[in-house]
Design a protein around this nucleic acid. Structure first.
Length: 586
RNA sequence: GGGCCCGUGGUGUAGCGGUUAACAUGCAGCCCUGUCAAGGCUGAGAUCGCGGGUUCGAACCCCGUCGGGCCCGCCA
């Protein structure tokens, strides 16, 4: 045994006991004859005092440097009243070192452990094992552990079974790009890593495991974002004999209890608000709106029905929309600041951004487009947007999707600038009634928006043949503070409806047989009605931890170029390995 | 595939056409018995990511390249 206690454990009740601690030198304060060392492990920090009276022990402290690994035997004693450190959990006591040894020395570390630095993230990733020693990362990984532990315990209580599914599976061309694994035994053939265990969990429903879950690693070979890594973890669930409402209610109970347990200090809004996909896009321009603040998009089409302004006119004539945002108190923006906003709108796909600034003192409206408007139109816009002196009005005219994307960008930007989103609030919501299909312009065909097994709303079933674009699905997303943290659907379990959907998606019988034959066959042997959901654990933990990238809550994340800077993966491999796998590089 | 931003001692920054490349912190040595971001003194440490170019002269300007970040496309 290297230690009798951890560095976070000692309290006044331990006074007088002889204990042994082991840990890293967090900080050293050398006063000559007296040396203080803060000894750290993942449980905390304990101050160890080395007095020159114990000469050999004192010498160990003299030689010690930051991040040396020490073992110290000593006596727990109370600190003098004026030397108590209320910042430390162990701050009422200290360890009087009687005997100590250096278990291992350490080079000067490239990053400081004791201080949260602003270093280049690449450096942190290269030396991740040092970065992970920091309190922040430990706190995040501990939170992550608690989240996953809670999910397992909760679902166990609800009679769910955690069942593992394979990592080496069959590739299907649907969805994201697959990570492929070559087969040695089958020349020229490949496994794929799962984008999600979708088909497998549906097979488990056919098999009668009516409440399944898994903490499932998923892989998608797509470009990265701050909330997207090539491998990530989902809470994957599937249930039989359930309707959409059952799934929503269960998940709401799960996440409510989860948040109340692991982040009780946060304000959780319940019940979760529900809004349709159409409403979300209409009011917020996003299917994952941050509802902690309002700042809604305002529809202006009807006021401009006869406008002479070509930009608005053109958009409306082309079947598009004109919508705006009222930004309170930003009417004083400079030309340069406004130009930045125009660039932001363009990043969202808009060709431009019309703005109107109302002076704080009242008077003439400054705007990029006022002179092009017809009589009374500016007044009508100002009225509709309920603009007040000092406000800034931002207006985009384009196709609905472009208007939504660009105003969503602006809406989120101003939430940040104006501090509208309370970081301490968790605002979950359900986005429902997604369109089932999506028109693929490039390929001129319908694509499944969720996946091809998603069931249509019963009320829309009859439209499948006549007007597929308006058919809504029994699909639902769980949204938290502007992030999609979960999504799922009720699946089709009727063979005739499935065939109808395949026909719509232009999936031939042969293709369906080749790609999904095993599922279709399985469904002929008594498939129960079923549905499920998958939650993005990384994103949820990120939000609960108040972090802005999921890299901060993963032990060993990858860079935007999908490389691991610590191990230098991916890497070249031996010619012999390639040969065994029947692979020739081009 | 595209747009924008970043790269200077171990670390974080300043310098933005001529400087002995500055500051903080860390590091090393010495002094110091109540510190907890300990303090004091002394010192070492950077060919400015890399490669070209412009210039009498480049950390600084230009081109390319590598690495990192944010976003668009992509992510059923």
């Amino acid at each position: 045994m290297f230690r009798s206690h951890t560095c976070g454990e000692l309290r006044p009740e331990h006074v007088g006991q002889e204990v042994t601690l082991a840990g890293w030198v967090h900080r050293r304060r050398d006063h000559g004859e007296l040396i203080f060392i803060d000894l750290r492990d993942r449980y905390g920090i304990t101050q160890v005092v080395f007095d020159s009276i114990t000469a050999a022990t004192h010498q160990v402290a003299e030689q010690s440097r930051s991040e040396y690994v020490l073992q110290v035997r000593g006596c727990v004693r109370p600190r003098p009243a004026e030397a108590v450190n209320p910042q430390l959990a162990t701050g009422a006591v200290e360890l009087e070192a009687l005997d100590a040894q250096i278990l291992n020395a350490a080079r000067t570390t490239p990053i400081y452990i004791a201080q949260e630095g602003g270093e280049d993230e690449a450096l942190r990733l290269k030396y991740r094992y040092l970065d992970l020693r920091r309190e922040r990362m430990q706190r995040n990984l501990i939170l992550r552990h608690r989240v996953i532990k809670f999910m397992r315990d909760f679902l166990d209580q609800e009679d769910f079974l955690e069942i593992e599914t394979p990592i080496l599976i069959k590739s299907t061309p649907e969805g994201a790009r697959d990570y492929l694994v070559p087969s040695r035994v089958h020349p020229g053939k490949f496994y794929a890593l799962p984008q999600s265990p979708q088909q497998l969990k549906q097979m488990l429903m056919v098999a009668g495991y009516d409440k399944y879950f898994q903490i499932a690693r998923c892989f998608r070979d797509e470009d990265l974002r701050s909330d997207r890594q090539p491998e990530f973890t989902q809470l994957d669930m599937e249930m039989s004999f359930v309707e959409q409402e059952d799934v929503l209610v269960l998940l709401e109970r799960l996440f409510t209890a989860l948040c109340q347990t692991v982040v009780p200090q946060k304000r959780l809004l319940t019940p979760f608000r529900r809004l349709s996909y159409a409403e979300a896009l209409e009011r917020y321009g996003s299917d994952k709106p941050d509802l902690r603040y309002e700042l809604e998009l305002i529809k202006l089409d009807d006021l401009l029905a006869n406008t002479p302004f070509q930009v608005f006119r053109g958009a409306l004539d082309a079947g598009g929309q004109v919508k705006g945002l009222r930004i309170p108190g930003c009417g004083g923006y400079s030309r340069k600041q406004l130009d930045e906003l125009v660039e932001l709108a363009k990043a969202g796909g808009a060709r431009g951004l019309a703005w109107a600034a109302l002076p704080a003192a009242g008077g003439e409206v400054r705007s990029s487009f006022g002179k092009n408007l017809g009589a009374g139109e500016m007044e009508a816009l100002v009225g509709r947007m309920q603009a007040q002196a000092g406000d800034l009005l931002l207006i985009v005219a384009d196709q609905a999707a472009v208007v939504a994307a660009s105003l969503d960008k602006l809406r989120r930007e101003f939430a940040t600038r104006l501090n509208l989103a309370d970081p301490n609030t968790l605002h979950f919501s359900w986005v429902l009634d997604f369109p089932m299909l999506e028109w693929n312009e490039d390929e001129a065909r319908w694509d499944a928006r969720h996946h091809p097994f998603t069931a249509p709303l019963d009320a829309d079933l009859h439209l499948l043949a006549s007007d597929p674009g308006v058919v809504r699905a029994k699909a639902y997303d769980l949204v938290l503070n502007g992030y999609e943290v979960g999504g799922g659907s009720i699946r089709i379990h009727r063979r005739d409806v499935q065939q109808q959907v395949f026909d719509l998606l232009n999936i031939s019988r042969e293709t369906a047989q080749a790609q999904f034959g095993h599922m279709l066959e399985a469904f002929e042997y008594g498939a129960p009605p079923h549905g499920g959901i998958a939650g993005g654990i990384d994103r949820i933990v990120m939000l609960l931890a108040d972090e802005s990238t999921i890299r901060e809550i993963m032990a060993f994340p990858k860079t935007q170029q999908a490389s691991d800077l610590m191990t230098a993966a991916p890497s070249s491999v031996d010619e012999r390995q390639l040969k065994e796998l029947h692979i020739a590089l081009r």
